[in-house]
Write a protein that binds this DNA or RNA. Structure first.
Length: 428
DNA sequence: TCTCGTCACCGTGCTTACCC
DNA sequence: GGGTAAGCACGGTGACGAGA
């Protein structure tokens, strides 16, 4: 079914160039949603001499990872890149995040489950460690060894709290993403409507076909296992069936005008794809937020402001959004922790006075609030077992890349989830 | 014998409708 | 906003048959 050609605002997602070349975890949640999961994948890229080289990746997910978590990764990234100036930190209520991502709205009676899924996805994504021995750096126009997490977060420890959530991107990752040529845009609503395998294929096609009209020959095994995340143990005929279904969905959405899985010799399959009409109508840049849509709005309303004064306050501090977000959080934390008796006049007066003084350097955040933040941060620490796996993976991918043993190990682990026991066992 | 396509089955996660 | 149940979609597996 072709997408609606309406004039309503389309939500735009943002993808990272190297990350969509390969899957971050298996598609099957039974394989991916396990503690201390390690997923290996590889992809080929043209090096500086124009020859094909191979990039090897490892994704270490201490809390496991679900293919559906990627929706939140790309969605949050798009929110950070929405304005003229990219924001390395997002501070907003979960309701704001979910409504911006189109997961909840005022007309649908949905809520609890979406909040829980968002919270769990954020937890899993925040502890992921990503390693790649040839990650494309758009600023230096070269491939580099990288190791980073995606983001850190700070949520109120009490699930019922109405305080804002804070999400801070990893500086190295964010530097790569926000650079010109480091990201690409796609239609998040279309992405959300697809199943997880089709979503990955959609992103891969969005990246590659935005630069050229046709892809003549993508290795089928590479695409189905490394890029989409099907298990290598699944017979090729079954994978072919599933990839064909995903291709058909993209043809129906006019992302592709034509696609074909074909065989050259026995056991050697390739995929061809041709760009569809989706690319000619895609809105490249997302609209900037008005003050009324600011992530601060819900926090200010919760503190007691009317809508108009809240808009004025947001406009006044539009160049210092972090300062306003921090004092909103302090005010809400004080309301929850000490009650209204904490405030001499009102929470609104406290906020305006505090943020005014803080902007002039005459007031700093209270100690009790720093202590709350410290306790919230403490929840992130890896277990001893997790630290051991991470150290082993780093050594394996970057420490001895040229040894035959490592190459052999990579071949057997490619596209698979490695058992933690085997990793720790090998290191003995 | 090998490759390939189709189908049924099971387990899991997600969406939707309904209700409070 | 939040909980629950039913139905749906999908990934993985295995069996079976057709054709080269």
């Amino acid at each position: 079914m072709p997408p609606k050609s309406n004039t309503e605002r389309r939500i735009t997602g943002a993808g990272q160039l190297s990350l969509v070349e390969h899957a971050l975890c298996p598609l099957d949640p039974r394989l991916s949603l396990v503690e201390n999961a390690v997923y290996s994948a590889c992809y080929s890229y043209p090096n500086q001499e124009g020859k094909r080289s191979q990039a090897n990746t490892r994704v270490f997910a201490p809390l496991g990872l679900s293919a559906s978590d990627e929706l939140f990764l790309w969605g949050l990234l798009s929110l950070s890149l929405r304005g003229a100036e990219p924001e390395s930190e997002l501070v907003a209520t979960p309701h704001w995040f979910l409504s911006q991502l189109g997961l909840i709205n005022q007309s649908t009676r949905r809520g609890g489950r979406q909040y829980q899924q968002f919270r769990e996805a954020i937890r899993r994504l925040s502890v992921v460690n990503y390693m790649n021995d040839a990650f494309y750096d758009p600023m230096r126009s070269e491939h580099r060894q990288v190791c980073f997490g995606f983001f850190s977060y700070s949520l109120p420890a009490e699930p019922r709290s109405s305080r804002a959530w804070k999400i801070a991107w990893d500086p190295i990752f964010f530097e790569m993403v926000q650079a010109i040529g480091g990201n690409f845009r796609f239609d998040l609503e279309q992405y959300r409507a697809l199943d997880t395998a089709s979503r990955r294929l959609f992103l891969f096609a969005s990246k590659v076909l935005s630069r050229r009209a046709q892809l003549h020959a993508v290795d089928f095994d590479q695409l189905s296992i490394d890029t989409l995340g099907f298990s290598a143990s699944v017979p090729r005929r079954v994978r072919k069936d599933k990839v064909n279904r995903a291709l058909k969905k993209l043809i129906d959405l006019q992302v592709l005008s034509e696609a074909n899985v074909y065989r050259t010799t026995t056991g050697k399959y390739f995929v061809s794809m041709t760009r569809g009409r989706y690319f000619s109508r895609q809105e490249q840049r997302a609209r900037e937020l008005s003050p009324g849509e600011s992530p601060m709005m819900e926090s200010l309303l919760a503190i007691g402001f009317e809508r108009e004064p809240a808009v004025r306050l947001i406009t006044r501090f539009r160049h210092r959004p972090r300062l306003l977000a921090e004092w909103c959080d302090i005010t809400q934390a004080a309301m929850e922790r000490f009650g209204k008796s904490f405030f001499k006049k009102s929470p609104m007066a406290f906020l305006i006075d505090s943020v005014d003084k803080a902007s002039k350097g005459n007031r700093t955040a209270p100690d009790w609030w720093e202590e709350i933040k410290r306790l919230e941060r403490a929840k992130h620490d890896l277990t001893a077992e997790g630290r051991a796996v991470f150290a082993k993976l780093q050594n394996e991918l970057f420490g001895s890349l040229n040894t035959k043993a490592t190459t052999a190990a990579r071949k057997t682990e490619k596209g698979t989830l490695t058992a933690i026991g085997s990793i720790l066992g090998n290191s003995k």
